[in-house]
Design a protein around this nucleic acid. Structure first.
Length: 474
RNA sequence: GCGCCUGUAGCUCAGCCGGAUAGAGCAGCGGACUUCUAAUCCGCAGGUCGUAGGUUCGAAUCCUACCGGGCGCGCCA
């Protein structure tokens, strides 16, 4: 157990002993000022109301009742902070524990209900973009952190290879494919087609594999085959990109499987049965206003097809049925309208409201030397995640993505990310690693072989400043 | 118009379930050291925490209004 946790426990015990008060969140931190000790706590201040006494008095009482042999000195300071000085033996023990545990240090054993983390979930209509990159970096980091702090996590990528966007992808590829043979394929709305360079790549790959067999074929047969080839091509590319970014998934969940298993129609029936779905204007609506949404949402369109809500609700119910305690959805900020309605649907299905946790990731603004990089998806002019990694490297890409909170818009300056200078934090980290490795190489020592800390080599920082002249610590 | 997010040092960002002089890195200024990769180390300066009110013993943090930026308000996903 960490020193912070041990101190928090001791404070909780002292509160029970001295005041008969049961505290839940006890905050112990490392103060900014070394003069304030090795650790400090604001319990007395934060819980003054619970104790019904003035903070200084409470702090004094807690300090007196504290039973913690590893604490050398306790003092009450300022408006009611409790400052601790910890013995160097305790620090030595902690360091010894750190060295022997190695990379496992600080990790917790898994416990509690597993979490389903869904992220990226981009439909296979093209390569991953720089915006998706932020999702991959954030989601992967979140998964690692949750796992390290003792939660079982499953990562899923939910995709749909059958919707309207996919149809457009198929049309786009078919048009390009025809062009490769010098033909023109009639399309209903040329402006809606995807224009990216990759469309040509897909068409060429298709020509490579199947030759001209779709050229004069019945479109009713050719188009599905072309579309299927295109989505497979995109999905394979996405998987490659994700692997390169070291962001793996336990499962790629195809929306289609929810129709095949009957779960979509089940969900509709269940909502009807619960009285939360009604028909109006020829469509079937979810009564989501009853559960906090702005307006009711269509589940089944007038033409009989489903909106995305239907399979999405089926997917979330499927997550619940698989035994997950929490579903975390990482979505783009352009889906801001989504959480209230899907939550409404979840509650309407009788699942707990807090089952779903949605994290919205803001957009990435790409800069190059302070100048904004213009992107236009419509014109097929965008920066792919692969191009970004080509330019700055995988590590720098991930570092910058995760550097600032996912909730704020971020500026990603490609020019800075490749600089080998003080301005580039990635370079700093890499350089620090190189230097440390160099030291160990010269010392002819393997850092992994260090098992115990010689007495007096390390000291808590409250002792460091005062006794710096006595011992040199390299 | 309504809703959600956001505005902290010249720049990029922490801090935001209220608490000790508001932090870091970079950039700036001053100094040290000629080396285990100087792409180093130490120090200094720099902030009306968007603005105005309110709650509180105490507000960057909570509440209200306003200003600026982003996103959303489809029988698209």
């Amino acid at each position: 157990m960490s020193l912070e946790a041990r101190l928090a426990g001791a404070l909780r015990e002292a509160a029970r002993e001295a005041y008969g008060v049961e505290l839940d969140g006890v905050h112990v931190e490392r103060p900014n000022e070394a003069a304030h000790g090795d650790f400090a706590s604001n319990v007395a201040l934060a819980n003054a109301k619970v104790f019904r006494r003035n903070p200084r008095e409470v702090a004094q009482g807690l300090a007196e009742a504290l039973k913690a042999p590893f604490v050398e000195d306790v003092e009450v300071a300022g408006p009611g902070f409790i400052n601790f000085r910890v013995s160097s033996e305790a620090f030595g023990e902690e360091l010894g524990g750190l060295l022997s545990t190695g990379e496992g240090y600080g990790r917790r054993e898994p416990s509690g209900a597993p979490i389903l983390l869904e992220y990226v979930s981009a439909n296979p209509t093209g390569p991953m973009t720089a915006a998706h990159g932020r999702h991959a970096a954030y989601g992967d980091s979140l998964a690692r952190i949750m796992a390290a702090s003792g939660r079982k996590v499953s990562r899923e990528y939910y995709f749909n290879d059958g919707g309207n966007q996919i149809r457009l992808l198929g049309e786009s590829v078919a048009a390009r494919y025809a062009e490769l043979f010098g033909r023109e394929r009639p399309v209903s709305d040329a402006s809606a087609l995807y224009k990216g360079e990759y469309i040509r790549d897909i068409a060429e790959a298709l020509k490579e594999r199947d030759g001209d067999r779709y050229l004069d074929a019945d479109p009713a047969e050719a188009l599905p085959a072309i579309t299927s080839f295109a989505t497979d091509w995109c999905m394979a590319g996405i998987r490659e990109t994700l692997a390169r970014a070291r962001s793996g998934f336990d499962r790629y969940f195809n929306e289609k499987s929810l129709y095949e298993s009957g779960e979509v129609s089940e969900v509709i029936e269940e909502l009807k049965g619960r009285g939360h779905a009604y028909e109006s204007e020829g469509a079937l609506w979810l009564e989501s206003t009853r559960f906090g949404d702005d307006k009711d949402r269509v589940l089944v369109k007038r033409d009989g097809s489903y909106t995305y809500m239907a399979p999405d609700l089926a997917y979330h119910r499927d997550k619940w049925n698989r035994g997950f305690g929490t579903a975390v959805d990482v979505l783009g900020a352009d889906h801001a309208g989504y959480p209230p309605r899907i939550r409404a649907g979840i509650v309407a299905l009788g699942l707990p409201e807090d089952f779903l946790d949605v994290e919205l990731v803001r957009l990435v603004k790409l800069l190059r030397g302070g100048e904004q990089v213009k992107v236009s998806k419509r014109a097929g002019n965008f920066v792919t995640f692969d191009e970004l990694m080509d330019e700055v490297g995988e590590d720098a890409a991930r570092y910058f993505y995760v550097r600032s909170s996912h909730r704020t818009e971020m500026n990603f300056d490609l020019a800075v990310a490749v600089q080998q200078s003080d301005e580039n934090p990635v370079y700093y980290v890499q350089y620090a690693h190189a230097r440390i490795a160099s030291i160990f190489r010269r010392a002819e020592t393997d850092p992994g072989s260090i098992r115990n800390v010689p007495e007096g080599e390390f000291a808590p920082r409250s002792e460091r400043s005062s006794s710096s002249s006595s011992t040199s610590r390299a």
